[in-house]
């Protein structure tokens, strides 16, 4: 099937129309009418990237210790004074050192934490991909998943098809302990 015949199918047309509508709504709402973050939101976002210096692995946003409260109010003041997120984080980094950062920076040694999972995931995908190619080279299996409306079932004569449907339905119904009534129900 090439893309022209694909496009002529009604189901594909419907799917495309829905997709376009969704994208249109998203572009209008997210790109056009984006709202700036509030002071509280920004304070929280910044505080959650900094480690509370006296806690066990808690962030400044989460900790309830006095020092974390003080740091939060410093951040809030800086935000209100018009500093950018990066500026505020950088000022904490100069006074406390790298260990204040909860989110390891993307440069130097700490980059390996970000790249580790990505590399592992790519390796996993590669392994599955190579394996999948080998499966495809193996004998292709017949399509088992069709129901009787599928094209694969079209070789049958209508009589034969109806008879097989009846047998199948009865067997399935018996297996389930259901009463079997002559095939009006849909599978």
């Amino acid at each position: 099937m090439n893309w022209r015949t694909l496009l002529r199918q009604r189901s594909i047309q419907v799917a495309l129309a829905v997709l376009v509508t969704v994208l249109a709504v998203w572009i209008v709402t997210f790109a056009v009418s984006a709202r700036p973050r509030s002071v509280e939101q920004r304070t929280h976002d910044i505080a959650s990237q900094l480690r509370c210096p006296i806690c066990n692995g808690e962030s400044v946003a989460d900790s309830s210790t006095p020092i974390a409260q003080q740091m939060r109010s410093v951040i809030r003041q800086d935000v209100q004074a018009g500093q950018s997120d990066d500026q505020i984080i950088a000022s904490f980094r100069t006074s406390y050192g790298d260990s204040i950062l909860l989110r390891p920076p993307l440069g130097g040694f700490t980059a390996i934490i970000w790249f580790g999972p990505v590399v592992a995931l790519l390796a996993g995908i590669a392994i599955v991909g190579v394996a999948a190619r080998e499966w495809r080279r193996a004998q292709p299996a017949p399509v088992l998943a069709h129901s009787l409306d599928d094209e694969a079932a079209h070789d049958l004569s209508p009589d034969e098809r109806a008879r097989l449907m009846a047998v199948l339905r009865r067997e399935l119904a018996e297996d389930e302990g259901l009463r079997y009534s002559s095939g009006k129900e849909r599978l």
């Binding site: 959650s48 990237q49 480690r51 692995g57 962030s59 050192g97 790298d98 260990s99 950062l101 909860l102 989110r103 390891p104 040694f109 700490t110 390996i112 934490i113 970000w114 580790g116 999972p117 592992a120």
Partner: peptide
């Protein structure tokens, strides 16, 4: 696993314990 072990890696290779927070 990687994020959990990272503080250990950084303290043994760099002598500085980096914390990996929820953000990561």
């Amino acid at each position: 696993f990687w994020g959990t072990l990272f503080p250990l890696l950084s303290s043994s290779f760099r002598g500085q314990t980096m914390t990996v927070g929820a953000e990561f």
